[in-house]
């Protein structure tokens, strides 16, 4: 079928280094470098070894960033992740104390997380009329509530035998095992999001889920899978967390979902869906972590650190908006 007017359309992508540097991810990379320089200046003990040593504390949260990013890319949300971590950690500790062999304990942790994710997935796909914010608000309360019941009156449990968990917390040189797994997940999730059909469908659902459905994207299937994977990784996170705390209590994992969402948003992933890249989330996660480690080393009040992070998050979203409206006003004025 020949085009009547013979008009041609260009198909060459416009790739330039300048564009890459000026993108959100590019700026984040610069910020990452800047923060590391800053930390090096203010903290005499800010060395790679030290940073790696303190990482495990934060890695458990960074884990959750990847599957959370998938949920956010689709335009949905999950605020029950912290509670899932709590429940999975509780179940793992309880089963360990009950004498279950370590492999079984691992299975219990992972399974608990996966089941929680599947419950969220089921509710989200069967009741599409409900905002996932509300669904996961409910499950957030239920999952932690179940953990509370399991923990009983004491509200906490300590591992009687921490051998298995000590294994997980091992290191290769100065680098904890967890770090490798986090990097592995980072690569895996990023490749899938950027280069696989699954990733393209994610962005489609987040940009316009109805068009995606009409075009053959299996929306419900992808939602269910994403929530389940988030649950599974929450289980992984719980196991790693337990290997550091040797126990679980009713406040385990509190705020994890907020941190994951904050890291994702700071990394350029919009809660509205369809926008942002995983690379941004990864860079922002490590940027924030390095900042926390650095500030912690100079004994800054942890609450002040929280304030700084909160302010950073808001600025990260506010500043682009302000600069956009300034440039719009400039365009208007220049034409007058």
């Amino acid at each position: 079928m020949a085009g009547k007017s013979g008009r041609t359309i260009s198909a060459t992508p416009d790739k330039s280094l300048k564009k890459a540097l000026l993108s959100w991810e590019g700026m984040l990379l610069l910020l990452f470098i800047a923060i590391n320089i800053l930390c090096k200046c203010i903290s005499p003990v800010y060395t790679l070894t030290n940073v790696l040593r303190e990482m495990p504390k934060y890695l458990t949260e960074i884990f959750l960033l990847f599957p959370m990013a998938y949920i956010l890319l689709m335009g949905e949300i999950d605020i029950s992740v912290g509670s899932t971590v709590c429940l999975a950690a509780t179940m793992a500790c309880l089963s360990s104390n009950a004498g279950v062999p370590f492999i079984g304990v691992l299975a219990v942790g992972l399974l608990t997380g996966t089941v929680c994710g599947m419950i969220n997935g089921f509710l989200a796909t069967r009741f599409r009329e409900l905002p996932t914010m509300i669904i996961t608000l409910g499950t957030q309360i239920v999952f932690r509530g179940i953990a509370e019941i399991a923990l009983g009156d004491g509200g906490s449990v300590s591992l009687t035998n921490a051998d298995g968990f000590r294994m997980i917390a091992g290191k290769v040189g100065p680098v904890p095992y967890m770090f490798f797994i986090v990097i592995l997940c980072a690569v895996l999730f990023t490749v899938i999001a950027e280069k696989r059909v699954f990733g393209r469908s994610l962005y489609a659902i987040g940009s316009n889920s109805r068009t995606a459905f009409y075009s053959g994207v299996k929306v419900n299937q992808m939602l269910f899978i994403s929530y389940t994977v988030l649950g599974l990784l929450a289980g992984v996170s719980a196991l790693f967390l337990t290997s550091a705390t040797y126990g679980a209590n009713t406040t385990t994992g509190k705020g994890f979902e907020m941190d994951a969402i904050a890291m994702a948003v700071f990394g350029g992933i919009s809660t509205a869906g369809g926008k942002g890249k995983l690379v941004g989330g990864i860079i922002s996660a490590f940027t924030i972590t390095c900042l926390r480690v650095g500030l912690g080393q100079i004994n800054m009040n942890p609450q002040v650190i929280l304030i700084i992070l909160g302010a950073l998050l808001i600025c990260a979203v506010l500043l682009p908006n302000i600069s956009q409206s300034i440039s719009d006003k400039k365009k208007k004025a220049s034409r007058a």
Partner: peptide, 21 residues
Amino acid sequence: QKTGLILSWGLGRNVTLPIVK
């Protein structure tokens, strides 16, 4: 606009959406 296209996407990706796989 609501069910045929993804307005924020480029034309090319809109055209290939059903056949990406």
